[in-house]
Amino acid sequence: MADENRKLAMVVFGGTVDKLYPAAIMASGAVMNDMDVDIFITFWGMMPFRKGAPYQLQSVSKDHEEMGAAMMRAMQEKKVPSWYDTLQQAKEIGNVHVHACAMTADLFGLGQDDFEPIVDDIIGVGEFIDMAASATTTMYLG
């Protein structure tokens, strides 16, 4: 049973491997602390959650592009679980919800069936902000 007084709300805007790891790891940290987690995936942060996309994602941030290949290689060599497996594990253990941004979904013509099952629903910003308003911690991962 999660601590009802503490909740993490997180906006995930970036959709590259290096930006999704922090989202997955922060969610895990919140679960360790017995906090519920609401993740709002929007714009590029939504794309890796499309069906079949999580394990295909290879791209890294443009501003550290030259280190991308080395990072991916190190992750593989050291058998670091993918950002997606890390997030799934957090969701298995804790109360983690992934909400897709309705505006972005409409923009790209995506419906619930276009996403991996880890995505709980498609919600509007109003609903997410209401969740964030009752959270004790809110993070924006750009």
């Binding site: 940290g29 360790m32 050291k78 679980p81 253990i93």
Partner: peptide, 14 residues
């Protein structure tokens, strides 16, 4: 051993 944060902690909780 060989797992990275948060792996061991999450495994322990489970």
């Amino acid at each position: 051993r060989g797992s990275f944060c948060p792996g061991p902690m999450m495994e322990l909780i489970r």
